[in-house]
Design a protein around this nucleic acid. Structure first.
Lengths: 248, 248
DNA sequence: CGTGTTATTGACCAACATCAAACTTAGTGG
DNA sequence: CCACTAAGTTTGATGTTGGTCAATAACACG
C-alpha cells in the first residue's frame, strides 16, 4: 500500500498518464516538467473545486483519490467519475469557465494547481500537447457515456463488476496496481452514489461477487481473482478507455 | 413543421450553434463557410457512423434529428444524446480514432461530411475555432454528466421533464423552436432508451405530465404549457449547457 | 382500406430502496 | 495495551418504483 512516501515530482504521473493515451516527445516532457504549480493538500472529504467556481487554474492530482460529483435537488449525490494521480480532472475549466460540478477528495489528497495561463501557453507552444489534452477530455467523456449506459441499462451486479474493472485498468496505467491486487479507497456509500444504487444493495451485490469467486476484498484492498469472469459479468470492454495499445 | 424545404447552406446552423456557445469572428465564419463537404442523406433509423468505425471525416447535421447510442451485452440500447442541425456529433473522432458508439438517424437526415484534414487545417489556422470546437465537446461531456445524474438519481418523472427542457433549449439555440411549441421527433421507445426506463413507464409518466398541465403534446408536436413548473419537476438548471448568455 | 409503427391499458412481478439495528474495524487518547 | 469512538459494513424486514407481458387502440402512409 502507500506506506512508502511518494517523492516523485508532480509531473511524473501526468506523463505516465499521457503516455497511456498517446505519444509524448522528449521536448514535450520537459515542457510539462517546467510547468509552474502550487502544491496543496486536502483532507479526506474536502472539496478541491466546487460547483459554481470559476477557477483560474487546473489541478493535477499528485497523490490520493478524487471523485467528481453533483448534488441534486432532493439532496442526493451523483458521483460521475473517479480520478487518480496523473489526472487533471478539471482540465475542462480551460474552456468552460464555470464549474458545473465539484471535485472532492476520497482520501487525503495532494494536488498541484497549475495556472490556466501556463497551460494555455503550453498548448500554444506544443500543439501535440493541446491535442493530447483534448484527447484526454474526450476520453473522460467516453467514460461518462459508458457509465451512463451502465446506470441506464445494466443490473446492479454488472455495474459493480464494471466499475471494478475500469478502476483497475486505470490504476495499472499509472503503475498503481498489478495482478497482486490494489488499494481501492472507495467506500460502499461512494460506490452507491457512483452507480445510482443504495449502499445496502451495493453491500449485498459485493457479497455475491465475493461468493462467486470473482473478487477477494479485505477492507480497501481488492484482488481480482477471476478477471475473465468479472469482465463477462460486468459486460466490460476496455475500448472506451481508448488506451494507446487498444485504441490503435 | 418541416414542410418548407430548408435551403440554407450546411454551415449556417453550425455557425448559429457555435455562436450560442461562444464568439465567432467574421473571418472565422467565412473559413467555416469554405469548409469542403460531401452531402449525404439517410433514411430514418439508418446509422450515420457505427461503433468500431474509424471515420476519416466528421458529420455536420444539416437537417433532421440524430441520436448517439450504444448497444450493450444483453441486446439493450442506451441512447446517450440527441443531436440536431448544427451539431457535429462525432467531432471527437478528430482525436479518438475508433468510434465507441454509433450515431443513428431518428428522422430522415441530411448530413455534411467534412474531411478530418480540412478540420485539422482549420483549427491550425484559427485557434479560436479550435477552442470553440474543444469547448463544444466539453459541453457534450457536461450533458453526459447531467444525464448520468438524472438516470442515476432522479425519478422517472423528473428525468422526462428534464430532457424535454433540455431539448427545447437546444432547439431554441438554433432557432428551431419558440414559445409556440416545437416538433419533437422522438418516440416513447427512444425516450425510454435514453432515460433508462421502459417504454410503458415513459408512456404513463408522459400522461401524468399532461394531466398536471405541464405540457401539451399531440403526436410529435409539443407545447410546454408551464415552463416554470416543468423546470421545477425536472430539477432543471440550464447552466450545464454552458450557453454564452448563462455561462458568462 | 390495409399494414406497420407507435401509443395506451391492465394485470402482475422483480429489482432495488428504505428503515433500523447490530456488528467490525481502524484510529485515538489515556 | 485497552477502552472509546466514529466510520464503515452487514443483516433483516418491509415497501415502492418501475419492469414485463400481452392485448388493444390510434395513427400515418401508400
Amino acid at each position: 500500500m502507500a506506506d512508502r512516501k511518494d517523492v516523485s515530482p508532480p509531473h511524473t504521473r501526468l506523463i505516465a498518464k499521457l503516455e497511456a493515451i498517446g505519444r509524448v516527445t522528449e521536448a514535450e516532457k520537459s515542457a510539462l516538467a517546467d510547468l509552474p504549480y502550487r502544491l496543496r493538500s486536502f483532507p479526506e472529504n474536502a472539496d478541491l473545486v466546487r460547483q459554481g467556481d470559476k477557477p483560474p487554474e487546473c489541478c493535477l492530482i499528485v497523490e490520493g483519490f478524487v471523485c467528481r460529483y453533483k448534488l441534486l435537488g432532493e439532496g442526493q449525490r451523483q458521483i460521475m467519475s473517479f480520478h487518480l494521480p496523473g489526472d487533471i480532472p478539471d482540465l475542462q475549466s480551460l474552456h468552460l469557465r464555470v464549474m458545473d460540478h465539484s471535485l472532492s477528495a476520497l482520501t487525503p489528497v495532494t494536488a498541484a494547481f497549475i495556472p490556466h495561463e501556463a497551460l494555455h501557453a503550453l498548448t500554444r507552444a506544443f500543439p501535440g500537447i493541446a491535442a493530447l489534452f483534448w484527447r484526454d477530455t474526450l476520453i473522460d467523456a467516453a467514460i461518462f457515456r459508458e457509465w451512463l449506459a451502465g446506470v441506464g441499462r445494466r443490473t446492479a451486479k454488472a455495474r459493480i463488476a464494471h466499475v471494478i474493472c475500469e478502476v483497475y485498468l486505470k490504476l495499472r496505467a499509472v503503475h498503481l496496481a498489478d495482478d497482486g491486487g490494489f488499494d481501492l479507497p472507495i467506500t460502499q456509500v461512494e460506490l452507491a452514489d457512483a452507480l445510482g444504487l443504495s449502499p445496502v444493495h451495493v453491500n449485498r451485490v459485493l457479497q455475491e461477487l465475493r461468493a462467486d469467486g470473482l473478487i477477494v476484498s479485505k477492507g480497501r484492498f481488492v484482488i481480482i481473482s477471476d478477471w475473465e469472469r468479472l469482465r463477462a459479468v460486468g459486460d466490460f470492454d476496455a475500448s472506451y478507455l481508448h488506451f494507446r495499445s487498444e485504441a490503435a
